[in-house]
C-alpha cells in the first residue's frame, strides 16, 4: 500500500440516517470484537483422503464453525433487534458464504492452499478425491487470490462479512410487510452502518478519492463471486448427502435443508 503521506477525506460522508447511531470506528471495533475464535478440526487425518473421509472432515468442521457463527451474528450491532424470523432467514441464506469468506481470509497468505483450519490445510490437488469439488476449490482459490492482490485488510474483511449477513435478504425502505414498515427500516439502517464502516476503513488506507471508489467497487464486486461459489458449494454438498457419501446432521443439516429443493 502507498505510504500515508496525505490525509484525504473519506469518499462518502457517513449517512445522515445513521445519526446518532454509532460511529464507523465504533462499529468496526464492535464487529472486530465479535470475531469468532480460531477452531481446530481435532481429527486424526489419514492421508491420502478418500472421498468419504474428506467430505466427513469438511462437514465436521463446518458444523463446529456454524455454532460459532450464530454467536458471532448475535454480536453484530442491530442483529438481535431484528425479528427472530429475520435472524433465522438471514443466517440460513448466507451461512456458507460466511464460512467461505472466513476460509478465504485464513488462506490469503497461503497461495494455492485452502486453510480450513490450522490442522486441516488442503492443496488444490487433494480435491481430486471428491467428485466435483475441484471446481469449487478453484473458485475459492481464485477469490482468495483476488483478496491477496487487493491486500485485504482485517477491518475490510469484518465489514464484508457483516455485509454478507445483513444483505442476505433484500431490504427495502418502501416495502410494506405484514409486520409493518419499521422492521425493514431497521435492516436497511444496519446495512447502511456496515457500508459507512467499510468506507471509513478504506479511507484510512491513504488512497486518492478515485482509488477509494475503485477499492469499494472491487471489494463489493467480490461478494457476487462469493455468493456464486456458495451456491455451487451448497449444490455439491446436497449431492454428496443424497448419494450418501457423507452423513450430514445437526445444525449443518438444518442449514443445508433450508437451501435445497426438499425444504418446505
Amino acid at each position: 500500500l502507498p505510504p500515508m503521506e496525505l490525509s484525504l477525506p473519506p469518499l462518502v460522508q457517513p449517512s445522515q440516517s445513521n445519526q446518532p447511531f454509532m460511529s464507523p470506528e465504533e462499529f468496526i471495533s464492535r464487529i472486530m470484537e465479535a470475531e469468532p475464535p480460531e477452531i481446530y478440526l481435532m481429527e486424526d487425518l489419514k492421508k491420502p483422503f478418500t472421498q468419504a473421509s474428506m467430505m466427513m472432515s469438511l462437514t465436521n468442521l463446518a458444523d463446529k464453525e456454524l455454532v460459532l457463527m450464530i454467536s458471532w451474528a448475535k454480536k453484530i450491532p442491530g442483529f438481535v433487534e431484528l425479528s427472530l424470523a429475520d435472524q433465522i432467514h438471514l443466517l440460513k441464506c448466507c451461512w456458507l458464504e460466511i464460512l467461505m469468506l472466513g476460509l478465504m481470509w485464513r488462506s490469503v497468505d497461503h497461495p494455492g492452499k485452502l486453510i480450513f483450519s490450522p490442522d486441516f490445510k488442503l492443496s488444490r490437488e487433494e480435491g481430486q478425491c471428491v467428485e466435483g469439488i475441484m471446481e469449487i476449490f478453484d473458485m475459492l482459490l481464485a477469490a482468495t487470490s483476488r483478496f491477496r492482490e487487493l491486500k485485504l485488510q482485517r477491518e475490510e474483511y469484518v465489514c464484508l462479512k457483516a455485509m454478507i449477513l445483513l444483505n442476505s435478504i433484500l431490504c427495502n425502505d418502501n416495502c410494506s410487510t405484514a409486520a409493518g414498515l419499521p422492521k425493514k427500516n431497521k435492516l436497511c439502517k444496519n446495512l447502511d452502518s456496515v457500508i459507512d464502516a467499510l468506507v471509513w476503513a478504506i479511507s484510512k488506507l491513504g488512497l486518492s478519492t478515485q482509488q477509494q471508489t475503485l477499492r469499494l467497487g472491487h471489494l463489493t464486486m467480490l461478494l457476487s463471486h462469493i455468493r456464486h461459489v456458495s451456491n455451487k458449494g451448497m449444490d455439491h454438498l446436497s449431492t454428496m448427502k443424497k448419494k450418501n457419501v457423507v452423513l450430514v446432521y445437526n445444525l449443518l443439516l438444518e442449514m443445508l435443508d433450508a437451501n435445497t429443493s426438499s425444504s418446505s
Partner: peptide, 13 residues
C-alpha cells in the same frame, strides 16, 4: 430449526 433456534435464543456464556 431446533438447533438454530436454540442457539439464537440462549444467552452467550
Amino acid at each position: 430449526n431446533t438447533k438454530l433456534l436454540q442457539l439464537l435464543t440462549t444467552k452467550p456464556e
